[in-house]
Structure formats: structure tokens, C-alpha cells
Design a protein around this nucleic acid. Sequence first.
DNA 1: CCCTGCTGAGAAACCGCTTTCTCGCTGAGA
DNA 2: TCTCAGCGAGAAAGCGGTTTCTCAGCAGGG
Lengths: 335, 335
Amino acid sequence: MSDRNRAVTIADVAARAGVSQASVSRVLNGKQSVDPAIVQAVQAAITALGYTPSVAARSLVHGRNDTIAMVVPDLENPLFQGILRGLSRAAAADGYRVLVADTAEQVDEEEATALEARHRCDAIVLCAPRMPEERLQRLVARIAPVVVVNRPLPGAQVPIVGVDYARGIRDLVDHLHGLGHRRFAFLSGPELSASNAERLRGVADAVAAEPGITIDVIEGGSRLDDGYEAAEYVDAARREGVTAVIAFNDLVALGLMTRLRELGVEVPGDLSIAGFDDVPMARFATPPLTSMSVPRGEIGAQVWTRLRTLIAGGPIEHTVLYRPRLEARESTSRV
Amino acid sequence: MSDRNRAVTIADVAARAGVSQASVSRVLNGKQSVDPAIVQAVQAAITALGYTPSVAARSLVHGRNDTIAMVVPDLENPLFQGILRGLSRAAAADGYRVLVADTAEQVDEEEATALEARHRCDAIVLCAPRMPEERLQRLVARIAPVVVVNRPLPGAQVPIVGVDYARGIRDLVDHLHGLGHRRFAFLSGPELSASNAERLRGVADAVAAEPGITIDVIEGGSRLDDGYEAAEYVDAARREGVTAVIAFNDLVALGLMTRLRELGVEVPGDLSIAGFDDVPMARFATPPLTSMSVPRGEIGAQVWTRLRTLIAGGPIEHTVLYRPRLEARESTSRV
DNA sequence: CCCTGCTGAGAAACCGCTTTCTCGCTGAGA
DNA sequence: TCTCAGCGAGAAAGCGGTTTCTCAGCAGGG
């Protein structure tokens, strides 16, 4: 864009090489056979002039530009970072580039950002955990081809790749149950978060399935501070008999542990704590944090296969959910 | 791009409104006065047809698209995340959008990625801490307008915004010196990293300025693991009399502290430890980590003011370096 | 009442590239 | 030797907008 540097167009190259624009284009794309002498001349002209084709012109003509966009609410979230990595690698293998648009948690912006992004890219990977369902439905219809990440969308005409949070929570409860815990607290995430709702479903399932256990739900959030600030409530619950806490995610768990230490509560001696996501910091915490690991890169790769199918005009493939894997560490122990 | 949905072009709108394309364009851009009746008709047609102008066509014609790209080596680095935030906010205020291209630490890709990005955006914010200087010089010339972040580039025709790492290290050494420390270790970062070189310069300055102190340099890295793995060497240095360690960044410091705890080394009792960057996790560590805070959002905003000037055809403004601020916490104490 | 100047809408050129269409040329088959 | 298919290069038509140019229509001044 706005190239002071490159006033050089395909016409300049053609002129210098003494051939037509069409020939230059053919050489560039290598689709048809062209006289080796012309190829020579064109390539010489290109390097001499330092020519690079205009992306805008190119995408105007074929209506695509081999670029997809990933719209995320929060680039600081290690989950999205990992998915982005996996997605970028997979897409790159097919000659596609990935751009990122961070909506900074502004739900209102997500819609505009996604539409905007869709305008300059061939497809969208959408992470919008807080967008109301019906708005999301409408949006998804407008920006197809699109793959939705990490939230359910009943009956939607869109591929979904995500994490089975409910199952993960259940597995985590089972782990703790096996350690003898019966009274739990769940430190919940953002109220509107879809993945929090899934986790809560897991909590409910666990209570229903496992007779004799109780799970208190304490309001939390999604960041370090939220965990830190919830510690007093958690401690109060502990005094009432809770022996294990499941936090919305690792950051919350880490913040919680920090404050508990200040309060003199020993982990896991007085209280077992588990997180979710298995962020890199988890195993470096004091004590190392038990967490549920999700295959971030794998999710990204899977998103790409679905998106590629869609771009090629294929069908909407089935939803796939990854089951988190328990990473038992020292923050949880026998009661 | 590739719009199955939107086959609707400006011509369709014009036809439906019964006016010329030119009028539709005028209504869209509001540059000239047009008959209110036409405005009405056009707007009605637009909403009826769900028309949205093609970004590609638009950028083809005026050679710009009000979008800039930030090229980063590692989106997981909280520093870049913060800068991105600040940049996005500032640019948004002027109607610009920011896209992100992550080069995944592949130095070889940085060049291609930056060129690519420059093709679809009006300007570039370049973070390339490991790219050899002369290559960077050439690249910068090709992708102007561009602002370089967080690395010096002597004599370059490009605005630079960064952190005064050398000064930060000196201030940190002074802090520790004030606590009575005389023998230090610096756990260095990636060998080719420009900011590591700056830090090493700070180390050298400190040794030169402060008689009677020594600073051993231990090879490290930039991530949690690197700190963890360097712990044995650090511990050995401690046995030889080192009382304070300055890590390349907070992640390294956190990894180091984890391993030291396993080794039974008390922080700060046996050894004071400081990091750099003041990442969110720093104050939640055990013990809370002394660090040098850098104004990430502010840097991003400053980058934008410089880039905006450049885009508007203004001069290359002077380099600006932010001086990190000491956040003294409990990981450092009197010797 | 006629001429001039101005406003605003439509026609058309153009941004830089791809792709179809056309046509000259070559070589094979009759 | 002549015809015709086939190949490859150039001309030209878009892709979807913006912007210049042109010109009709109107108001104001002489």
C-alpha cells in the first residue's frame, strides 16, 4: 500500500522486458508455458526493477488472497496463543497466512472486527466466548467460511473445534475424589463465558454422578488478580470443610495460591488446588500446579483442516472436542 | 474476499437506487454534497442489499487501506502483548487497524513476513531482536514507513522506540548494591538478542562505574525452562560467593526460583534474585519477584505517534528510550 | 431576455493485475 | 505444396471501487 518506493508496476516490467503484461503475468504465475527467452527477460526486468506484485490488485481480481484471520478476545491468553501457533503452522503448509485481530475483550467490537477481518481475508477463525448466542449465529452466517473455536453453538451451520471442559472438570473431580476429597469448591470464571458454562455443567454432572460429594461455586474471574481476590472466600469455605478447590483456569489458581500462602494456608496440606489449561507457568509454581492440559497446537491444526475444507467448498465437518488430560502435580494431594 | 455471500457490488447498489456508481461512491464517502433524495435512495439500496464495499478494490485505487501490521517474533512474550495493546488503542483513535504477524522466532521468516505484511498494510511496526543488523537495515529501507521496536540500529533512517535496558540493568545493580551486594551473577538471554546485548552493556557499565563489584555472566535464555536449567550453575556461583542474580527477564527468574527451591536454596535468604519486564506473574511469585517495569502500553502508543507522522509524510522522529522503573519486591533483600 | 457561472449528476478513465480472446506462426498430415 | 491443428504471445476486457471530466440545469447579472 501507499508505495512511495514501488511505483513499479507490471507494466513497467513488461516495457523493460519488451513483452506484454500478459507474458509477465504468465511468467509470474508459471501456469502456462512461455518462451524461455521471455522468461529470462522478464525475470531480469523484475530483479532490475525490484518489482513485487500488488496484493490488492491480485486479490481484487481473483477475489481471494490466501490469508485467513483469527479473531481473539485476548491475545494474552496462553490458550489462544497455542491455538494460533498450531493454526499458523498448518495453514502455512498450504500456503496460507494467518493474521490476528485482538478485540481486547470488547464484545461489541468483536462483530465489527470479524466483519472487517473477513473483508480482507478468505476466512475467519472466531473465538468469541462471551458473545450472546444469537448474535454469534447471525455473525457466523455473515462471515462464512468460518470455524468457531471453543464454544458450543447448537444447531449452527459452522464447524466447531473446542475443548470438552465439562468432561475435563469431571475428570478432575474424579482425580480429587480418588484422593479422598468429598467437599469441593469451584472458583468460577467470567459469568458470560461459554467455557465457564461448560465447566459448570461438568460440576453439575459430577455432583449428580458422584453421590456424597458437594461442590460450592465461588465467583471468580479469569485472571491472576481474580484468584488472588477470591482467596478469602476460598479460605472461608475451607474452614467450613472444603478440602479441594478447582479454579476456572491456571492463572486464577496461581493468583489464589499466592494469596493463600500470605494467609498461611498450606497447599496442598490444608487445601488441594487444581487449575485448568496447563499453562507453561503451572509446573513452575510453588507447589507445581495440578492442571488439565489441552492440546493447543493440535486444536489449531484441526481448525485449519476444517477451514481448508470449507474454503474448498466442502461440507461443514462435525464438531470435534478434545478431552483434556490430567497433569497431576503437587498442588493436589490425599486429603 | 471469495464472497459467495456478497456478489453485491457498487453497481448493484447504483442500479437499485437508480443512480450512477459515482453517486453511490459519493454517498459512501460523503466528500461532496449530493441531493438528499439520492442519499436516501442509495442508503436504502445499501441496507436492502446488505452491501459492503470491497476492501481490495478500495485499496487498489488509493493505494492504502488504513491498516498497519506489527511483526513480532513471539506473541507469547508479555512485552509484545502490552505494546500491541497500546499500539492498537492509539491507532484505533486515528481510524487505523492493527494486524499481527507472528514469526515464531524464525529469523529467516521475519524478512519475508515483514515484506508480505507491508504489501497489505500501509506501514509496519517491526520487532526483530535477533535479525543481523545489516539485514535489518536493508529490510527497513524496503518496508518504510516503519518503526523499529526495542533494538538500537545505529545510523538508521527509521524511528526507534524502545527500552533503555542498559540503564535498567544499572539501576537494578545500584538497588542491589544499596542492599549490600557486591558479587553478582547475570543470567544472560539469547545470544543474538539485541536487548540482551544492551543488558550486557549495562552490566559492563556497572562494573566499570562501581568499584569493588563483580558480575559473573552465566548463559541462560529467555524462557521459564532456561532459568530452570541454569539453576545448578547459579547455585555453584552462589557457593563461590555470589549473593545476587539478575536474570535476563522475569520468566527466566521464575524458572530459576523454582529450581532453586527444589535445590533447597532460599530466596532471598541465601540468594537475592531479580528479573526484568515486570510481567503480571512477577508479583504473584513466591517470593514476589523484584523486577524492572517497562511501560508497555506507553511504548505502543509512542510507536503509533511516530508511525503516524511517517505515514503523513513527516520526518523521522528521534529515538525514544524508556527508562525501566524498579519494582522492589521480596525476592531481593539485604545481603 | 440572454449570457455566464456554478452546482451536482452521470460517463468514463483508471488503479494493477489476471484471464479470455484473437491471431500469427510453426509443424504435421494429406 | 497446401491445409489445418496447436501453440504461444499480445490485445483487451474485466475485478470493484474512486475520481476526473463533461455536461445539463439553474440562478443571477447585464
